[in-house]
Nucleic acid binder design. Structure first.
Lengths: 307, 307
DNA sequence: GGAAGTTATCGGATTTTCCGATAGCAGATG
DNA sequence: CATCTGCTATCGGAAAATCCGATAACTTCC
């Protein structure tokens, strides 16, 4: 337990700004202090969090891993602070959530845990379905809020959306793949490779568009609805995959390791966020949920100013 | 975000030891340092965490509230540390959990969240039933581990148990109750009061025994299986309740406040823990679960030594 | 009244943290 | 090619935090 909350704060800021100087400015602190903090943190963990770069620094895989924990810790701290904030007007009632399957395991679980902790009186129910159907339910008033991929939201008139996480597409490779050593990977490199396709939410559609933009037809070796299956298939060398970073984990179920790489070029990102019906009066429970989610992954700016 | 992880560590130690000196000794640190840290923490939060007492110090209600958050934060920190500990041998497989209803909402949810985070590959299923039936399933090999109240475990030959939390009984009162102002509350004070009885797990049996030890027959005004109902009934003045501290929350569903008080005298405590079949080879998933739970609420001693 | 136990307080030593300046490096620019 | 710009690493000293030891004040128990 040697590292400090302050170090975590600096680390997160650096990870998000992508540069020490930027983080220092955003924290209104000197640059050397940030450098020291990061160095101290790394030596304490015994892990290199960033790769020093000519122009800024890019986060390591382990750094990314630690980033998740760090944000979680700071969220807990924020909860603790707020817990006896202002009388905590305890709300009861119901909250009807909708969620798409990709988001369910990777985004909603944390969010829901925090929400239940903060508002234990609310009775939460959640259903999982595809995005179109969720939109239908939202418009019909049968759902309060949906957490979903909103990059391709259909009805932007009746529905209001708020992004709270954007996740870039990354390339998943088995360890030792020929592309693993390449300095730069471009889309044309991956076109001939056999591709493992996840057929959940809109990932298939997106990946198809992605490659079509380079006038390439993907060489699809497998289709599956299970992220775990994609991991196993990639790990055992059945192919490579192109998936948003938020579902990436460095190992498969059986323990085989996989690797994830950035792809050069401006590939689109997946936007995860909340959707609710525009103009409809939200219940207190829904407002609280939205507020919590907003503050989960957006508050970096404010957090910096608060200092 | 001003307080420090160190302060949290000291705070937890004081809360558990019940005295600054004891905490200082357990942390192998000077007493004044602990006093300073607590005082700093209190002034930062703007809340008094402890009531200074002639003989040690007792935790405030808000202190208790903060304690929960503090342990959660430190658990997250520990997770972050361990996350890239040693290759993280990723296990798959299944884990069959059993849980009694009281424990499900108040103990298991946190534990399960941490477990899924640490071992995302394991497929967890849980069933909720009464203690006797869980014992039956454990012996039959249909459950890997059960999380339950183990104070009155029947079969201690075939089953092995490990406590990881003990929760004292406390008295729940509506705000402004005549006993709320009393300096000391003894069992004889509460005997004539109408009692709200929770008929879940073994709480009814325990409460009965408790009062019977003072040769008193409880004056039961209500029986219910819902903790929420107990809160509402207590808050609206229908009676008082005698329940383990781990289910205490200071407000009812409707927002009415309730209060909890210590009772003088050595009342028994509820022991929550895990149970598994003695001698049977546990699966890796079960061993991991047990290890995580052990380290959730027991590591204070070790944590102190690690310093 | 004294002994033993507790927490609070204070001054000084030690350690951590921060800052500002400087050096070094890579790319952009003239 | 020289120069400028934007970035990180390093270093010494200042500032702040943390810790310690001693002491005071109080309560309980003998």
């Amino acid at each position: 337990m040697a590292f400090t909350l302050r170090q975590l704060q600096y680390f997160i800021s650096v990870a998000e700004e992508g540069t020490v100087s930027g983080a220092a400015q955003s924290l209104s602190i000197s640059q050397s202090a940030v450098t020291d903090a990061i160095k101290e943190l790394e030596s304490d963990l015994g892990v290199t969090l960033f790769e020093r770069h000519r122009r800024g620094l890019t986060i390591t895989h382990k750094g990314h891993q630690f980033y998740r924990h760090a944000t979680r810790i700071l969220a807990s701290v924020s909860d603790a602070r707020r817990s006896f904030g202002e009388a905590e007007a305890p709300v009861g009632g119901n909250l009807q959530l909708g969620v798409t399957s990709l988001v369910a395991g990777y985004v909603l679980s944390d969010l829901l845990a925090r929400y239940r902790r903060a508002y234990p009186g609310v009775n939460v129910t959640a259903i999982e379905d595809n995005g179109d159907y969720l939109e239908h339910l939202l418009i019909g008033g049968e759902l309060d809020v949906a957490v979903m991929v909103i990059s391709n939201l259909r009805d932007r008139v009746a529905l209001q959306a708020e992004i709270f996480e954007t996740s870039p597409y990354r390339l998943w490779l088995p360890l030792g793949h020929r592309l693993g050593g390449a300095d730069i990977i471009s889309v044309s490199d991956i076109v001939p490779e056999p591709l493992i396709m996840l057929t959940v939410d809109e990932t298939e559609e997106n990946t198809g568009k992605l490659l079509a933009a380079f006038s390439a037809r993907p060489n699809v070796a497998f289709r599956t609805r299970s992220v775990e299956a994609v991991r196993s298939l990639v790990a055992t060398g059945a192919g490579i995959a192109l998936l948003p970073d938020l579902v990436y984990r460095p190992w498969s179920l059986e323990g085989d390791r996989i690797e994830s790489r950035d792809i050069s070029g401006a590939l689109p990102v997946v936007q995860v966020g909340m959707v609710w019906r525009r103009g409809s009066r939200l219940t207190q429970a829904a407002r609280d949920f939205i507020g919590l989610a907003q503050q989960q992954h957006a508050p970096r700016g404010r957090a910096a100013q608060e200092r």
